[in-house]
Design a protein around this nucleic acid. Structure first.
Length: 655
DNA sequence: CGAGGGGTTGTTTTT
DNA sequence: CAACCCCTCG
């Protein structure tokens, strides 16, 4: 058989992809400039993702090793989607590009290079519910769990600690600035903080903030490690750079600063994470670090009709901070943004549900519609109405799938198999056994933690009632341990089998909960190692039972999206509803109180509006009772005025 | 000491 | 509406 030989003319690379015709001038410039520092200011809907994808593709086509490219994004899903699309363009080599969030990248680096910091590679990553459990242990230990005077809850304590890390301010300042009512407890709070850190160190646990801190230490203080990492990742790209905080910015500069092949992409008008320490100044001051950097602005919006974009631009004219660009579009005018005043929460829900069905009749698929809100509880009423009408929906943001008790129980069983030193998980699973309460659970843990075989309960004294339960637990743990080197889904199946009678005893609605466990099993099936599965569940938990965020492909089921605005970042829909647009809800009370946050609320509204392609509706109840203040909210959001009547079309509701 | 009932509380936003 | 606390009974 004859073989056709293709001559490779490597002097001037022949690109498979016709970049010149697929991208506009500015996008093309961003795609072609890959050596040297680049700042890319990319407005909403300006084809930012597309630009990044083509940039990676072109790098690889030019001959750059994909293993040496690092793409830092806001979610792992975003990274996976991009790399899938790169692979569609140029083939499998796209998948070799390293990508993920700052946190997941940190976890990866620390597993490989943590020894420079004397960190064991098998550390566990804990989420905030684990941290909460630890805080409870510490509080009980310190005798600070009594409720004589108002003492912050574990959730509040964790917020204070996290702000301390991410805003890089002392705990005292955090308390005096945001939590004044707890200032009398400052010393106790600091004590809990010290013990919390000690506990994590002793048990080889890292929380989200620790991941960033350790990575920064590694890059900053351990030159050998930094050199190794810099040699490995020669091209660094950071997306959503307006939402990085001080730690993340320093990490980025340490990663890309040596070779200076660094591109940051972002939009100062879309910065919405200041509560997590995000600094707009990071993106604005990037040129100060790299005075010779190229600055590329993507200002053409491809997403929204010109009426929607006009309304959004009009809103941003009221922003105190000047922005470096104005978006334009060549698209048709389209419908005006609808402004809908409803009597109350219930009518708002009725309207949204009815309008969604109307659009559905007109051929807009449910997948192409989204309802956005400031806080997740704003959608309660609507959720009831959607259930009543059998409109399928998924809710993003707010409470997560994995936070439900039964799934935490399953995960705890798996964690004990992986790490028998995990006190928090031990206590959780022991408490499920009949006849064992906090007291005996603690005793059992103290007995077994120093044993060579931690799954042997023979030395534990418990009441007769609990004996049987311990035998069953032991049987499960032994069998699971035998499977430890096999696929984690086998351990999950075993845990589910063991857990089923417990669940039946605890929850009336156990059939529904069983379905959640099945869904978790599907996700688990994609992993080949137990440690990987557990780390991923901590770092990027699935949003709901049908979430495919680990496969990177979208859900085919036709369902409506309900989402907090924060979780809607980077996405787009044919039709968008923004609900609860009234003072106290959006902007939120907290933001109105502390005037500076108002700027961020406005940007949040801007982000919400610019998600819409064809239809945008801003909806609010005329009056609504607010449980947090006990008062009535009745002022429409100030942002409605700022958008301006000329950009809005009022809709009347007739019943 | 553990279990289960009942009342109270308070809810931004996320990795 | 769920998580938390407190109480009482077994």
């Amino acid at each position: 058989m004859a073989r056709i030989f293709k001559l490779d003319n490597s002097a001037s690379p022949e690109y498979q992809i016709d970049y010149d015709n697929l991208l506009n001038q500015q996008q093309l410039e961003a795609v072609k400039t890959f050596s040297g520092p680049v700042l890319c200011i990319a407005g909403a809907g300006s084809g930012k993702t597309r630009t990044l994808i083509y940039r990676v593709a072109r790098m690889i086509e030019t001959g750059i090793n994909p293993d040496g490219i690092l793409l830092l994004t806001f979610t792992r899903k975003a990274a996976r989607n991009m790399l899938n699309r790169v692979s569609e363009l140029i083939g499998e080599s796209g998948r070799r590009v390293a990508g993920g969030t700052y946190h997941s990248f940190a976890a990866m680096m620390l597993r490989q290079y943590g020894h420079y910091l004397d960190l064991r590679p098998n550390f566990s990553i804990i989420d905030e519910s684990d941290s909460g459990d630890i805080i409870n242990l510490i509080r009980a230990d310190l005798g600070l769990n009594r409720k004589e005077t108002r003492f912050p809850q574990k959730k509040t304590l964790l917020e204070i600690f996290s702000r301390h890390i991410n805003l890089e301010k002392p705990i005292e300042s955090i308390i005096s600035e945001h939590y004044q009512h707890f200032s009398e407890h400052t010393e106790d709070i600091k004590k809990i903080y010290r013990n919390f850190n000690e506990y994590k160190e002793n048990n080889f646990l890292l929380d989200y903030d620790d991941l960033l801190i350790y990575l920064l230490r590694l890059l900053r203080d351990k030159q050998d490690a930094r050199n190794t990492i810099n040699d490995r990742f020669r091209y660094v790209m950071a997306d959503e750079y307006q939402d990085t905080n001080g730690l993340q910015a320093r990490i980025t500069l340490l990663l890309g600063g040596t070779r200076r092949n660094i591109m940051v992409v972002g939009d100062d008008a879309q910065s919405i994470y200041s509560f997590r320490g995000a600094l707009i100044s990071n993106i604005i001051e990037f040129p100060r670090h790299f005075p010779d950097c190229s600055i590329i602005k993507l200002e053409r919006n491809y997403r929204s009709s010109s009426n929607i974009l006009g309304a959004a631009n009009s809103l941003m004219k009221h922003s105190r901070e000047g922005f470096a660009k104005t978006l334009f579009t060549l698209r048709e005018e389209g419908e005006k943004t609808a402004l809908v005043s409803c009597e109350d929460d219930e009518e708002q829900a009725l309207f949204v549900a009815a309008r969604i069905l109307e659009l559905r009749e007109q051929g807009v698929s449910l997948n192409q519609m989204a309802v956005l809100f400031r806080s997740s509880f704003h959608a309660y009423q609507l959720e009831l109405e959607l259930k009543r009408r059998n409109i399928p929906y998924v809710k993003w943001g707010g409470f997560k799938f994995l936070e439900s008790g039964h799934l935490k129980d399953i995960i705890a069983h798996m964690r004990v198999v992986q790490n028998p030193q995990d006190q928090v998980s031990w206590l959780r699973i022991l408490l499920l056994i009949e006849g064992i309460g906090t007291q005996s659970a603690t005793e059992i843990f103290n007995t077994i933690k120093n044993q060579t075989d931690p799954f042997d309960f023979s030395a534990c004294k418990v009441r007769p009632k609990a004996k049987e339960g311990l035998i069953a637990l032991k049987k499960f743990l032994r069998r699971a341990l035998e499977l430890a080197s096999e696929k984690p889904s086998k351990i999950l199946d075993l845990a589910a089998e063991y857990y089923f009678p417990i669940m039946k005893r605890h929850f009336d609605d156990y059939p529904r909960r069983m379905k959640d466990i099945d869904a978790l099993a599907v996700i688990c099936g994609r992993f080949s190692r137990l440690g990987e599965f557990l780390a991923e569940m901590a770092l990027e938990p699935p949003r709901d039972a049908s979430d495919n965020n680990l496969s990177g492909k979208d859900n085919d089921d036709e369902q409506l999206i309900l989402s907090t605005i924060h979780s809607a970042k980077g996405l787009e829909w044919h039709s968008v509803f923004i609900i609860q647009a009234l003072e106290g809800r959006f902007p939120s009370f907290n933001a109105i109180k502390a005037g500076e946050n108002l700027e961020e609320e406005r940007r949040l509204m801007y982000v919400a509006m610019t998600r819409a392609k064809q239809n945008l509706a801003i909806v609010h109840p005329k009056t609504v009772w607010d449980p947090s203040t006990g008062g009535l909210l009745f002022q429409p959001s100030r942002f409605i005025d700022e958008i301006g009547a000329e950009n809005l079309e009022k809709w009347e509701i007739s019943r």
